[in-house]
Design a protein around this nucleic acid. Sequence first.
DNA 1: AGCACGATCTGA
DNA 2: CAGATCGTGCTA
Length: 191
Amino acid sequence: MHIITREFYQRDAVLVARELLGKLLVRDLNGSLLSGMICETEAYLGEMDSASHAFRGKTTRNSVMFGPPGKAYIYLIYGKHYMFNIVTERENIPHAVLIRGILPVKGIKQMRLNRDSSTGNLTNGPGRLCRTMNINQSLNECDLTSGKDLWIEEYLCIPSKNILSGSRIGIEYAMQNDKVAHRRFWMRYED
DNA sequence: AGCACGATCTGA
DNA sequence: CAGATCGTGCTA
């Protein structure tokens, strides 16, 4: 087991978003572990990106994004759902990667308990992912390199040819160029 | 202090 | 395709 270190996160969000695919997201709930392989991510490129929370500069909510990389940026959206992001790039460069999808690896039984509907889908969408992994506002600013509560481990290495990309979800308000840019990444399962 | 709105999800 | 639901950020 090898926890991803700060250097990994201290790079452009697009690079980090691509390389997070195949890695293991681990949640420690008082010693019982939940984990899932990251299979969908989105990169948000800070003050240059009209879809990013950091587009209009630093606020109380997004201040974590302006800090050191490797920390969790978590916020509530639509009054219902938590979104889990990882801060990337150097201090004062507010890049982040939104984790949109995982494939459950460990603790599926607990994940089933955490979910609130009976659709059969455990982790589809960034909101339900947080619910099933028990990720909430209390983990905002959590250091993902400390091996406490929440972290990322090496797992699979996904070759570039098996990484697909497309435009990001839910950013209708953004400028056209940011809307169409391929900053969402997921994995190809066929050969 | 008030108000508009969102990196979603559900169910009709 | 509308509605839930509430913290945040902007304006006054």
